[in-house]
Simulated assay, not measured.
Amino acid sequence: MVDYAEFEALAPFIQLVEESLAGLAGVADGDRYFDLFADDVVMEFLYAPPGTPPALHGRQTIIDSFRGYGRIITLDRMSDAKVYTTTTPGVVILEYASHGTGVTTGRPYHQHYVSIVTIRDRRIVHWRDYSNPLVVIDTIGDGQAMAKAMFSGE
């Protein structure tokens, strides 16, 4: 059972994904964001900042790494959400932007994303993220801060 209070900094993102996928009848099942993922899901970051992994393997690994997000950035809102269905069964493209603040720097955060989501047996099995790591680094002031907060287990 996931305690979503731990992920308050990501609440606008979580809500956006839940709502975007809920609108697609029969695509993904799950009451909440992390419930949508298969246990063996792979989440890829095509432009991963230095010191961060290019992929996360497994639902629990994603949950554990996302716990650290609130130490670096707090999201205020999402915008520009678009959902594209494809001719490939189970593949959906999400386009969106996030807006927030760097926790330690107070700098604004404005990021644009494209995520290609693959769903099999009503669970997300693959998530490929395209976003600009330089935006994150500029907001938090240091590329290693992201690695420490989200991927070091601290």
Rank of each mutant, 00 (worst) to 15 (best):
E6L: 05
E6V: 03
F7G: 03
E8C: 01
A9W: 06
A9P: 05
L10G: 04
L10V: 01
A11C: 13
F13Q: 10
F13M: 11
I14T: 09
Q15P: 00
Q15H: 14
V17H: 11
E19V: 09
E19T: 14
E19A: 15
E19Q: 14
L21D: 05
A22R: 04
G23R: 05
V27L: 12
A28I: 04
A28E: 01
D29R: 14
R32F: 09
F34C: 03
F34R: 11
D35A: 09
L36V: 12
F37T: 07
D39N: 12
E44Q: 13
Y47N: 14
Y47M: 13
A48T: 08
P49Q: 02
P49I: 06
P50F: 01
G51D: 05
G51Y: 03
P53I: 01
P53G: 06
P54S: 06
A55N: 08
L56H: 00
H57E: 09
G58W: 08
G58R: 06
R59W: 08
R59G: 05
I62P: 14
I62N: 13
D64W: 04
D64Y: 04
D64K: 04
F66D: 15
T74I: 10
M78Y: 09
M78E: 12
S79T: 08
D80I: 00
V83N: 01
T85A: 12
T86E: 01
T87K: 15
V91C: 10
V91R: 14
E95S: 11
E95W: 07
Y96M: 15
A97V: 03
S98G: 14
S98N: 14
H99D: 12
H99F: 13
G100W: 00
G100L: 07
G100E: 05
G100H: 01
T101M: 11
V103W: 13
G106H: 11
Y109N: 11
Y109P: 13
H112D: 06
S115N: 13
S115C: 14
T118R: 08
I119M: 05
I119H: 04
D121N: 12
I124F: 03
V125H: 00
V125R: 01
V125Q: 00
H126F: 06
R128H: 08
R128P: 01
D129H: 02
D129V: 11
Y130L: 11
Y130T: 10
N132C: 07
P133F: 02
V135S: 01
V135T: 08
D138H: 15
T139L: 09
T139N: 11
I140Q: 09
G141E: 03
D142G: 05
K148W: 15
M150A: 06
